[in-house]
Structures are given as structure tokens and as C-alpha cells.
């Protein structure tokens, strides 16, 4: 039913700021791409690369320097503000801070583009507000003020507002930035659900690469002055694009481990011979203590977990530990 309708399309879009009257400073090379219904797209890149500027431009909060943005087939700037309110909804990093604003008041504002001059909610609007809160799992927050909520709950209230606005696309700026890890995952699951169940296109920015690689359908990778790369997360990892875009001398993305690793070359090399859950976490311990993973031939330290024991072979000696804790407490021995 949803098919391949292009919700948002960018043609040679240039984003950035105008300095003074004439001088324009573009943040990125021109961008051409599109978002379809039901897609879950993450804009990812280091801080300051232009994620927020891109999202602000796409939501018409800021004018593009050049190029075109098409929303549902028509140019973004050709819509009036109230027409646009029916097509794009946003969730931002800063939240309303009025003392008495309640969760349901915020969600109700999502209906404001639809209701009359006196802001009277009809039965249909109340129904949509209730459904949106239900879908976001915040029905129990009715009557609570926004400022009394946790960051995760507050974020869900703002998403429920965007849902009540009933737009084909929702754009979120760093929705997971201030959340603890379980809340991040929970939030991503909620957004994913909205794309699959409601057919919404969702575009969000994040600087959390681990998170977007685990959750998004597609990534738009940006970095200072580099062209935007648009691809599925797995392809970006396998082609090495991630390292190119998150360029840090002392850090590299390790596709085997699926996270960033220090590139330092000092530190003893280790290899884990066994393959079980304990072995995985022994590796974690060695990595965080600054040891370097290596092949069996290269390694100076060999580790095995067998018969409920951790066995470490190092400079022709064998060390045996009953628990991972005792091993870690003596881990410095192997670095001398």
C-alpha cells in the first residue's frame, strides 16, 4: 500500500549559513537524494558536520543556500506554513519548559494545525491524541507536567505530539542524545514501529554510530566538506566509509568488533583460542585494558577458557584463574 512514494527529495541542495548580505558558506557539497514512505533514515556524522543544519533546512526552519527540496512532489518553500504543518512534524533537542504544561497538552498541540480559531478539540482530535499517546506508551503520563518527566519520557511525549500531527514524515534532531542506553534502544524500537505500522518516513540525526548501525534502514553519512554518502549501514561498514567519515588519528572503527578501537601500536598482542561467552568477555577486558587483538601466530598472550578455568599463556608460563575477576585483577602482569 505504501509502495515507493517519494516523501522528501533533495536536488543539488546546498546547506549552510549566509554571512552578512551576500557571502554564503556551504557546509557540505550539494546533496541529491530522497526518502520514501516507511523508511527509517539516520543522518550521522561527527559533531559540527552539519546534521542539525541539514535537518533545519529540510523542515523549512532555515533557507537552503541553493538547490531544491521537494516535499510530497512540490517544492518545500511553495507551501504555506500551515500547509507544511500537515506534512512535516519535528522533534527537537530543546523542550518546552513552561511549569504547568502537561503531557496531554503538548500532544494536543499536534492537532492545532487541524482545529479552529478557538482551538477547540473535536471528538476525532481527542481520539487521535489518545491513540498517539497509546502508541508511544505514555498513557500513564496523563496529568503529569512535562518538566517532571525523565528525558526518555519527555522525548516520547514530543514524539506523540508529532504523531498527533499526522504527517507523512517525522524529523527528529538527536532524539537519543540525552537518554540512557536502554531508553535509547526503546526509543529506536518505537520509531521503527512507526515506520512499519504507520508507514511514516522517519529521518533522525545522531552522533551515536553504534546505535544507528544497529537500528536505521539507511545512513546519510556526512563529515566536514565531504560529500554525503547514502547507503545501508552494512555497506558503509564493509566499504570502510565509516573510517573515512569519522576520521580520528587515534581511533578506528573495527568492523569485526563493531565499535571504535584505539589505533595505538603499543600494548601486548593477545589471541583467544576458545570460543564461548566467557571468551568474548575476556576479550572485552583485554581490549579495554589496552591490549591489542592479534592472530594466533602474532600473539604474545594466548587465552583459553576451558573446564571452568581461564588459562593464560604468557612468556612460557601458564596462569590459571577460577574467575574472570581474579584474572582482571592481575591483568597488569601480562603487560610487563
Amino acid at each position: 500500500m505504501i509502495g515507493s512514494a517519494k516523501i522528501l527529495e533533495l536536488k543539488n541542495l546546498q546547506i549552510g549559513y549566509t554571512i552578512g548580505k551576500k557571502q554564503a558558506s556551504a557546509l557540505l557539497p550539494p546533496i541529491s537524494l530522497f526518502v520514501k514512505a516507511g523508511e527509517f533514515v539516520a543522518v550521522v556524522g561527527p559533531n559540527g558536520a552539519g546534521k542539525s543544519t541539514l535537518l533545519r533546512t529540510l523542515t523549512a526552519l532555515q533557507k537552503p543556500l541553493d538547490g531544491e527540496i521537494f516535499l510530497m512532489g512540490n517544492e518545500l518553500q511553495s507551501y504555506t506554513a500551515s500547509e507544511r504543518a500537515l506534512l512535516i512534524s519535528i522533534v527537537l533537542t530543546d523542550h518546552p519548559d513552561d511549569f504547568f504544561l502537561k503531557a496531554e497538552d503538548i500532544v494536543a498541540t499536534g492537532r492545532y494545525p487541524y482545529i479552529d480559531f478557538w482551538a477547540r478539540l473535536k471528538a476525532r482530535d481527542r481520539e487521535i491524541i489518545a491513540q498517539s499517546m497509546e502508541l508511544c506508551g505514555i498513557t500513564h503520563l496523563i496529568g503529569r507536567t512535562l518538566i517532571s518527566l525523565s528525558d526518555g519520557e519527555r522525548q516520547k511525549v514530543m514524539i506523540a505530539k508529532a504523531l498527533a500531527q499526522d504527517t507523512p514524515i517525522i524529523i527528529l534532531d538527536e532524539p537519543a542524545a540525552f537518554l540512557d542506553y536502554p531508553s535509547k534502544i526503546e526509543l529506536m524500537q518505537l520509531l521503527r514501529k512507526l515506520t512499519t505500522e504507520q508507514g511514516k518516513a522517519i529521518l533522525f540525526s545522531s552522533h551515536d554510530l553504534d546505535l544507528v548501525l544497529r537500528t536505521a534502514d539507511r545512513l546519510w553519512m556526512i563529515s566536514h566538506d565531504q560529500p554525503l554518502v547514502d547507503n545501508v549501514p552494512e555497506q558503509l561498514v564493509l566499504s570502510g566509509t565509516i573510517n573515512k567519515y569519522f576520521d580520528r588519528k587515534e581511533l578506528k572503527y573495527n568492523p569485526h568488533l563493531a565499535h571504535f578501537m584505539p589505533t595505538s601500536t603499543h600494548g601486548k598482542r593477545f589471541f583467544i583460542k576458545s570460543d564461548n561467552l566467557e571468551s568474548k568477555w575476556v576479550r572485552n577486558a583485554f581490549l579495554r585494558k589496552g591490549f591489542l587483538p592479534a592472530s594466533i601466530d602474532d600473539a604474545e598472550i594466548l587465552i583459553t577458557f576451558a573446564d571452568e578455568n581461564f588459562i593464560v599463556e604468557y612468556s612460557n608460563e601458564q596462569y590459571i584463574y577460577k574467575t574472570i575477576e581474579t584474572l582482571i585483577n592481575e591483568i597488569h602482569i601480562f603487560n610487563s
Partner: peptide, 23 residues
């Protein structure tokens, strides 16, 4: 009295208010 709706939107902050169609 005629400004009640825009006032409610302005409580959300400028960007949210603009996104909800308010000039």
C-alpha cells in the same frame, strides 16, 4: 482573547510553533 491559540503554540518555543504552522 483572540490570541489564545497562537499563545498556546508559543509556549512550545519558536521552532515547534513554526512547525505547527504559526507565523
Amino acid at each position: 482573547v483572540l490570541l489564545m491559540k497562537p499563545l498556546n503554540l508559543m509556549l512550545l518555543g519558536e521552532k515547534y510553533a513554526r512547525n505547527l504552522g504559526l507565523n
